[in-house]
Design a protein around this nucleic acid. Structure first.
Lengths: 342, 342
DNA sequence: TTGCATTTTGCAATCGTGTTCAACACGCTA
DNA sequence: TAGCGTGTTGAACACGATTGCAAAATGCAA
């Protein structure tokens, strides 16, 4: 008892022990007061709550996680979180977590493999119940370790499907080929694809599907990848594609961010009229795509639906087995004004 | 020993005990192997590391936090995380945490008071070492509880300075009045302010400072607040201000997001030429302000510097006392093309 | 070999919680 | 009053780690 008193001075957070002493009850009583469905008399509960309030007591979830199997922590691993699409995803996920009473740990990786590995290790260190990977390609071995540890691993938009984890995707291939037909129906013939050097699986899939559809239709297309997935790269792509003599009359940008840069280059560097001289299709449907300056025709990633689905998987792990192991969402085309009406 | 064996089956995460058994050493040895600066022989270290690797062991930071006073957890509380400015801040913060070896817990609040309170409680539940509040106004009492628990509370851009926590701000007042002079020097006389109904302290400060500067110069200004801080509100503001007969020839938008909406309304709804007929100044310097479609003259919030400063505060809590308790950063004007050159 | 200083190692206590188990109090019926 | 069922309560034991302390092992010089 003396030793506890001694410690009291150095430890600043209030413990259940201190609440118990103040309320003149046992520590178990305090624990039960804060445990859902435990048996406590009303008088006891009031005494405890009062003491807890006076001392500023808050249950230590870290300690609680030691005995209960579920830490209620979910890790979100991503890179370039400030980017419109990623930010929207993080927003939806963190809001979802809040809703189902879990807490999100956000790990911002540098994007490279080593950094994704380190992030996944942290996930294990904090005994996260689930991990959502937005970007980066962790090794299959480490993912296996997570799963063996009882962790749920959810990969978003990684078309290279590892078999252990749950995959959440968008039908990139379908959208890619659909994008081609939209442009072809609009009468475009000299078509370009604006992509990035990132080489992210889902971007590659869109690119390939578009290319395949063009090949099927007997059209040669031109692909440029001036840099990472950014506004600046889109702008650079515009400068490259439009400075030559045979300007394209249409472009499929694998990302809205690229599309915004591309459109700006077209308009402000070359005075090109969109959509009269040049049609543009994007992908993601970020907020800016709906802004009047762009009015970009694009494919909407159902971010909210995807997040909801993930919440359901986390809430009820059994759902992982009843639902198919990889969930594929449809990217709906959103018609605005960057493509000529048929 | 048998009971431990019995538990082994149900518990999926590997514990130090299991590693010790496999390596044929004591639990302490395992702990010391993973503790920086502990005394372990090279032979022992190798044995332990090998067993740990084979079993897929990862130190349980939750349990570790029980004895060590520092949980290495930092909470970030914010609303509307998907918004460009907020997303950039979250990005900078989470990257900083990663750099200094801490882990970020992200709590997305609904923006109202109750929700901010709940978030702060979670912060206590997880024994976070520090909390960064991006938005929302938690009660002073709860903030006090956090501080009494040894937690560092850091408020960003809340000009209503509570005295307990550390305040990180931008010199909104200075920028607000500077904005007015930029527009006046450009020859504008019919000046409007586009603000939001959010009533965030920093927005109010900018608005007031601008108004005061105008009053000083003997100019009447018009203020509109059509809704929350968003692109749509900026657009609505444009429709309100420009549909009348006496159009303003300048506007100070207290946020870049508002400015983007406002500019789009001006151009695409009313065919107004910016900056010839209408000058616009924003605030924040979000990515989109630099896009060619907007080329918005604005004030840059030094987000990276602010995040760095916060990391320094977290790494060395003593710094909180040597450094002034509220740190104020300068918002540098960024000249682009939405204001006529003098 | 002995003596001494230095490093390694294991035991046991500790952190703050949840939960089992037995003891206890209480109200009701026979 | 005895007997019984129902709720409450507290002591004790995990959970998975770190660490002070003392014992053991090692290195080195005489």
């Amino acid at each position: 008892m003396r030793s506890i008193r001694g410690k009291k001075a150095s430890r600043l957070f209030v413990s259940a022990q201190q609440v118990a002493e103040r309320a003149g009850v046992s520590r178990s009583a305090v624990s039960r007061t804060f445990t859902q469905g435990a048996s406590v008399s009303e008088a006891m509960r009031r005494k405890v709550l009062r003491a807890a309030d006076e001392l500023g007591y808050h249950v230590n979830h870290l300690a609680r996680s030691l005995i209960q199997e579920d830490s209620r922590i979910v890790c979100v691993i991503g890179a370039e979180i400030g980017t419109p699409y990623q930010a929207r995803m993080v927003e939806a996920l963190s809001r979802g977590m809040q809703r189902i009473g879990r807490i999100a740990m956000l790990i911002n990786t540098a994007g490279n493999q080593a950094s994704a590995e380190a992030a996944l290790r942290q996930t294990l260190n904090y005994r996260a119940k689930a991990t959502v990977v937005l970007s980066g390609a962790p090794s299959a071995a480490l993912v296996r370790t997570c799963i063996n540890s009882g962790q749920q691993v959810i990969l978003i938009n990684r078309d290279d499907q590892l078999d252990g984890p749950t995959n959440i995707m968008v039908d990139n291939a379908h959208a890619g080929s659909e994008a081609f037909h939209m442009l072809k129906r609009a009468g475009c013939r000299r078509i370009a694809v604006v992509s990035s050097t990132a080489g992210t699986p889902s971007l590659v899939t869109r690119e390939r599907a578009f290319e395949a559809a063009a090949g099927h239709a007997g059209l040669e297309i031109r692909i440029v990848r001036p840099g990472p997935t950014s506004y600046a790269s889109g702008f650079a792509a515009g400068q490259i594609l439009l400075s030559g003599s045979d300007r394209p009359d249409a472009a499929f940008c694998v990302t809205d961010l690229l599309a915004c840069g591309f459109m700006d280059a077209a308009r402000y560097e070359f005075g090109v009229d969109i959509p009269r001289e040049l049609c543009v299709v994007g992908f993601d449907d970020i907020d800016q795509a709906g802004w009047a300056s762009y009015a970009l025709t694009t494919f909407r990633q159902p971010v909210e639906d995807m997040a909801d689905h993930i919440m359901r998987l986390i809430e009820d792990p059994a759902a992982e087995f009843t639902v198919r192991e990889t969930a594929c969402f449809h990217a709906l085309p959103v018609w605005r004004r960057s493509v000529r009406p048929k």
